[in-house]
Nucleic acid binder design. Structure first.
Lengths: 221, 221
DNA sequence: CTCTCTTCGATTGCATGCACTTCGGGCACG
DNA sequence: CGTGCCCGAAGTGCATGCAATCGAAGAGAG
């Protein structure tokens, strides 16, 4: 499925924010017609990963700092809801799957940064899927993916060590059924990620002219 | 835009859950080609309002009772987040717009039930839009629209009087900047709507064979 | 040398065509 | 009367064609 492939390419930064996505190039690359490529772009657009401008080439979105704050805010809330829902209700095999995933994260720790970010993200999606709430899964996936984009835009190289140990702590709290502890752990986990990432409203010097002028352009619409 | 028109038709129950939506009929009705109709169906599907089955006619979704609970749960959380964000931060004109909307709700109170449900829903979306968070707006819109569907499926004729007074109380709490009070008001407001609506997991006798067997059918996929 | 205008290639928006799949009615048969 | 089968009609999945639109390069003027 071309949609999934594209999504992953965006998440892993193979396609950087701002990258152009012409329909026929995509179609040719994936061996399908423009129709399919166009449909995939529509999907990705509705997930907030690509920007569709009328009569112009679609591009990978470039999240603004403001967007990033918004998204992290909502993410906090949703993920707290998730841990509250599943604390103490996970089966043994579910716990095992979570632990296995964290193990994979540890193994990928020395690999490429984009992969470790993707794995960390997938941990959260895995938690969401254990609520058996399709809507929750969709929203958290979407938001988490967009956080990926943001992280790789604003943050310095991701030091994922602490993230991994925090994931383990969360699993333990969930296993013990301590919802409050799990919620506060999740909260501080996301908070630390956000604070590490969203250090400044963009350095503002040395950036692309386009980026610098973006806020002014908005106002002149 | 055909997408908006369709959405509204679904919300207002002009198209009941389960109604078939063939691409060419839609296209013909709206004076566009299948391509456009198909695109609209895709959008609506990604919003969870229509169900797209491969090689088969698209239909308006029929939310299950379990779905309904899920959605209400998430809605509670999101709307609490919203009132927390905007409590005490609304401008005079924003307050005025909210009050005007409630007034419109009151006027429509004697009209068709579907319209008053739609207006009540739009009140919540209006609140969301005042957070200036596009993601929040999208999610709450989506969830609220799906709640519309659910309400008209499960609830007996909506007695909207109490809903209106609760909306007013929420506006006042927001105006006073009392975030906690607004959050608890919103919570109990949604809770009462949910409890009034989601009375039973479906009466289970006298229902359509189809509905009764739905849970079993899921499992057999 | 720089700025502006114009023109042409590149790309999207949308409609249509064709092959494949599903649905539903009629018919034979138990 | 109920059951299974078959075939035409209807509908979707996808590719392609054509017109409209955008943007970048090149020509021309200052």
């Amino acid at each position: 499925m071309i949609c999934r492939a594209l999504r992953r390419a965006i998440i892993e930064q193979a396609l950087e924010p701002g990258a152009k996505l012409p329909e026929d190039s995509l179609g040719e690359r994936f061996g399908v017609s423009r129709t399919i490529a166009r449909y995939a772009l529509g999907q990705l657009a509705s997930e907030g990963l690509v920007e569709l401008r009328r009569n112009r080439i679609a591009v990978v979105v470039t999240p603004s700092w403001q967007d990033a704050r918004d998204i992290f805010d909502i993410r906090m809330d949703l993920e707290r809801l998730i841990v509250r829902k599943i604390a103490g209700k996970l089966s043994g095999s579910q716990i095992a799957r979570l632990k296995a995933h964290v193990e994979a994260e540890r193994e990928a720790h020395d690999g490429p940064n984009a992969v470790s970010i993707r794995l960390a993200t997938e941990f959260h999606i895995m938690l969401a899927s254990m609520t058996n709430s399709p809507v929750l899964v969709r929203y958290v996936s979407e938001i988490a993916y967009r956080c990926c984009l943001t992280l790789s835009l604003f943050s310095r190289p991701h030091s994922s060590e602490c993230g991994i140990s925090e994931h383990i702590a969360i699993i333990e709290a969930l296993q013990d059924g301590d919802a409050n502890k799990a919620m506060s752990l999740m909260h501080s986990h996301l908070d630390s990620v956000a604070n590490r990432a969203l250090v400044e409203p963009t350095p503002a010097r040395g950036r692309d002219l386009l980026d610098v002028l973006a806020p002014y352009a908005e106002e002149a619409t």
